[in-house]
């Protein structure tokens, strides 16, 4: 993925609250992922219009953290989720 990529949850993937286990899960065809806190925050920012660059901007502002570092981190994370079929470009 590049900074211009607009990532979104892949078709069939749904973010749902799992009240029984007090956690959030991404449900997909015969599979589920329990995102960690960071992944969950990023998945919530996947609105289908924001690019990776825009998401990095938002997170950098929110945490007063270095933007380039955040962009690199979320690119790695989203590449990994894309390989698992959870998100698509």
């Amino acid at each position: 993925m590049s900074p211009e990529t607009v990532p979104k949850l892949a078709r069939g993937m749904k973010l749902r609250e799992d009240k029984t286990r007090a956690q959030w899960v991404v449900l997909g065809p015969e599979r589920m992922f329990v995102p960690d806190e960071i992944a969950l925050e990023i998945i919530r920012l996947l609105d289908g219009t924001s690019s990776l660059a825009a998401i990095a901007d938002a997170l950098a502002a929110r945490y007063s953290a270095p933007r380039e570092e955040i962009l690199a981190d979320i690119t790695t994370l989203l590449d990994d989720l894309a390989a698992k079929g959870v998100v698509t470009a």
């Binding site: 749902r16 029984t20 449900l27 015969e30 589920m32």
Partner: peptide
Amino acid sequence: DLGCLQIH
């Protein structure tokens, strides 16, 4: 209610 997340 029991905790199932998916149904087939």
